[in-house]
Design a protein around this nucleic acid. Sequence first.
RNA 1: GCGAGAGUGGCGAAACUGGCAGACGCGCUGGACUUAGGAUCCAGUGGGGUGACCCUUGCGGGUUCGAGUCCCGCCUCUCGCACCA
Length: 832
Amino acid sequence: MTVPTPPAGSEEPVAYDPTAVEAKWRARWAERGTNATDLHGARPYYQLMMFPYPSAEGLHIGNLYAFTGNDIHGRFQRMQGHTVLEPLGYDAFGIHSENFALKMGVHPTELIPRNVANFRRQLDRAGLMVDWRRQVDTTDPAYYKWTQWVFLKLYERGLAYKKQAAVNWCPSCKTVLANEQVINGACERCHTVVEQRALEQWFFRITAYAERLLKNLDWIDWSESTRTAQRNWLGRSEGAELRFRVLDPLTDAGSAGVMVSQEITSGSTVIPVFTTRPDTIFGATYLVLAPEHPAVERITTAEQRADIEAYRERARRQDLVSRQVNKEKTGVFTGAYAVNPANGDMIPVWTADYVLMGYGTGAIMAVPGHDERDFEFATAFNLPIVRVVAAPDDDAHTPLTAAYTDDADGRLVNSDQFNGLPVADAKRQVTDWLTQRGTAKAVTTYRLRDWCVSRQRYWGPPIPIIYCDACGTVPVPEQDLPVVLPNVPDYKPDDSGVGPLARHAAFHDAPCPKCGKPARRETDVSDTFLDSAWYFLRYPSVPRDDVPFDPALTKTWLPVAAYIGGNEHAVLHLLYARFINMVMFDAGLVPTEEPFKRFRAHGMIIRDGAKMSKSRGNVVNPDAYMDQWGADTVRTYLMFIGPFEEGGDFRDQSISGVRRFLDRLWASARDARTDGEPDAEVMRKLHQTIKKVGDDVPALSYNTAIAAMMEYMNVLRRGERVPHRAEVEPLVQLAAPFAPHITEELWELFGRSGSVFDAGWPAYSEALAQDDAFDLVVQVNGKTRGKVSVPRDVTQEAALAAAQADAGLAKFITGAPKKVVYVKGRLLSVVV
RNA sequence: GCGAGAGUGGCGAAACUGGCAGACGCGCUGGACUUAGGAUCCAGUGGGGUGACCCUUGCGGGUUCGAGUCCCGCCUCUCGCACCA
């Protein structure tokens, strides 16, 4: 492919033709291996972008936005002398692909390669500096062999376990979902309301890492918004677990107020509750257990049994949305009483769905005086409300018209020996006191739950476990990996709670690896988020088949130097990836506890002020724009429309400005003169621009870097001047990360032999960038009244004299100044 | 409700630790070149006033020689989390 040259003798200058230039350099890069990374090169720099799910619709403009932002950063680092590894792959397993395949009636094994091929074509066009030799595809057995290996590593370390639990079940996707995949009680994929089902599932013990995952957030170099989202998700809260003994009808019979049941209960039941406010124990007037709490069964009295059963049944059937959205308090008395460990009061035990089984112990002590939810419940059911904390202006007898929850200024009342203590002190002292009495311990609870990784679906890596009647649960030995996902025509999920692979005897039946007797394979596959939780470890070691990641390469390339991606993955992918990396670190397989040295969340692209969506019909098709404007223009435009970390508004109308800039760059290089000297004024602006672009690009301020180059372009061509080559050539380098094809072409036009990306970054000279005279702003009484041209290092006296000598300024400076403020190099402020 | 972020021309947006508000681009206006212009180039472009000047960064106060930027009190929007005890 060559760029058309004008016919001999033609006067017509060659116009910028992006189609030809881009095709030429795509071919040239492939031929020369320009984008191939030497894994043993000097100053390794791992530039990571979030690999896409290859949808049938093709590359989304949002993907392109993220990739371009990464690519510019990677290319810039290369021009700074780093050996940059910029890999990419496909996150092609998962429910989304499978649902789409089912809908279209095309098997995923056919659909995915087709989508991948289309993605690859679009990605190639975008001019990314990707080393495709390191590509990964999560659906390739050569990859998921190691995903299964990761599962086994966790199993080995006691971090993967199977348990029966109430889990989120999507009736439409017919599979369980992780908590992270349930948004407002609905499936994040299909938005169907999620049900609760009791199923046996594989879990990863991520909660064992909660503390470390939280602590490292204090120092990792990540976008603040992402760290905050993770902190909230981990949800650490400090408090105490208090033990309440439920009165036994036999032993406690005769105690005043106990309703003796005919039912004989065996032994005494102790209900542990978690609270962050142990200081309010004297105000705990009843207990509430979640409807699913196992103790409910045991303590309910005969009189209350029918009501309780009905209530539990209702709660069980109710989906999460109505349970969460309908916040009206409901509940039923169990008939049982428990003893308040602080004051010995007998308090009723209720069950209510405002208490969640999944958090803390699934039971609470209700302190209606100082908790809004308990106050609401107590009011609805006429339960006693006791004040145990008083605001500075209140006393022990001030009536409570609402829960008083302030824990900063309150002091304890109605709490025996703790009266008068501030809340913070009381928390500690009450916990200590109860701990000594054996009814409490200080505990820290996390909102985070263990990661449910089983999926009752087809399109994922089979979980490498075999169940043997004799040997029990047996992990598939490493040498038997991968457990290949069979290519079966019947892969539709059903409502049985068991994955479709269970229907395929050839897969399901397998000999026990230990004893060789007939046994059964696990038929669930693992969550897609496991595929992506370790992919960054794999890239440098592709295509090694003997190890998931080579120790030496991993040590060289990890942790990732720069990771840029969408904040929608703040608590999913990014938390799981940190967890898996931490486990690998504990196993001595990766060099650092944290996988990503630096993470930045990019913003979202909207279009004409509105969110892009298929239903709105305002989705930008990258192919059409690259056809019309060229990839370099699309890339540069995407980066120009707003701050990269905040996103921007894609408007068709504005793209022409960026194309005009590249047209002018082309013309400036083509027509540049080589005779004589470059203009000193222009060169000064050039050096200021080198500085600005060099500062802005690593800070991801791409929009201002482009603006600076445009500004320089205006100077370069002001008044239709013909620029000197020395004025243009460095600009070609500055623009290269943004517009790689055109700049390679112009670099070649200048007679350079290698790639512009191996030519380094233009040298910046502070001396050349410095203006010798400048305009000093003069303010009088706080108002800007004009400016005077003075030397840069002028003294205050000289500056004031210059201001007073200026006719336009002198009229404002009447009489002797009362006060003069002089900021060197900036302004002079005179008060009269 | 809690947490995070953001409100600046007709539009997308700039503004380093407080120091000329509106860089750059779109659009618009005028001009040049043209048979032509939805091409290219040049110039202008926050609002008001004939003018010297005045007003202007969501609203109201404050600190300061000086506030888009800092402090106090509100309003609006976006994104997370949401009965988490």
